[in-house]
Design a protein around this nucleic acid. Structure first.
Lengths: 149, 149
DNA sequence: ACCAATTTAATTGTGTACAATGTAATTGCG
DNA sequence: CGCAATTACATTGTACACAATTAAATTGGT
């Protein structure tokens, strides 16, 4: 209870979230390597599989990433033949991102990934669901704070 | 409950953790800008303030970072006058990292950062503590899985 | 004591993140 | 309509992350 405990690494929620995030990355890596994907690319495909064609802007607001991150990543995914990027004819400012056949086909091969995580983590599904919802709540809370500044 | 729900972005714990981590980064940024620190540099200082002098290896095992990340970051912190890096005389393979007076002095200015987060997040301290412990548990769980491979 | 195996950092190369800036297209107000 | 403000991306520059490799120092078995 000394005054320094507030600064102890193990008492920082921020570090716990950050370290946990990277640990999960490491878990996913060998699974994603088989599909030739990085982790952010996998998340991008999750969105496209779910929603179909989207603009860069829409992708960004779902993934909380900006064009500085997305543009180069999407170019790499286009080179890999997973997606197409094309200017919207109606509004030349927008770039529509859509799946190629190869990109669509990856979905079936990716299906086992969340299941593998669920099984190997060996925690009750209810517990993971609860943690998920708390984190979503916390993120939204902080996002409001960040956006109001 | 359809078969695709497992692949929905909003059902991915991994994404919730990742997005939350970056949202917290964004919250800390303006506070850390005042101290001239990045977020990983702040975490590194937390460790050094708590433990005193450490080798790169020891820092890495506390922060879960390797020399590929730490070496350039520590060089930047050395250039900024916050730390010293010196080869151990006893074992020339090791590099000891220690705080300069400026680095030590930052501790008092950083003290308000975790408090600000606690206050602004506006969540019960008990809730945040609970989330912290769950995340630490999850990280350890996954780390075991990752290391056993 | 000798030398292969191990340990510790540093380096290299790729891929995010993100602030700040630039640019072209579109909107909306007077 | 005319044009300033806004919007959507792209670009630039800095800073992580991390796998893979390299290099130097140390250790441990014979």
């Amino acid at each position: 209870m000394n005054k320094d405990s507030m600064l102890a690494l193990d008492n920082q929620l921020c570090f716990a979230v950050y370290a946990c995030s990277r640990e999960i990355f490491r878990f996913y890596r060998p699974l994603l390597d088989e599909l030739g994907l990085t982790y952010p690319q996998y998340l991008t495909l999750l969105v496209l599989w779910e929603k179909g064609e989207l603009t860069v802007k829409e992708l960004g607001s779902l993934l909380f990433l900006d064009s500085g991150t997305l543009t180069p990543m999407l170019k790499r995914m286009e080179s890999a033949g997973l997606i197409r990027r094309q200017r919207s004819p109606k509004d030349e400012r927008k770039v529509n991102v859509s799946l190629t056949e190869d990109g669509k086909a990856l979905k079936e091969r990716a299906r086992c990934i969340p299941e593998t995580f669920l099984q190997k983590s060996d925690l009750p599904e209810k517990e993971l669901r609860d943690l998920l919802e708390r984190l979503q709540g916390l993120q939204q809370q902080i996002r409001c704070l960040n956006e109001s500044q």
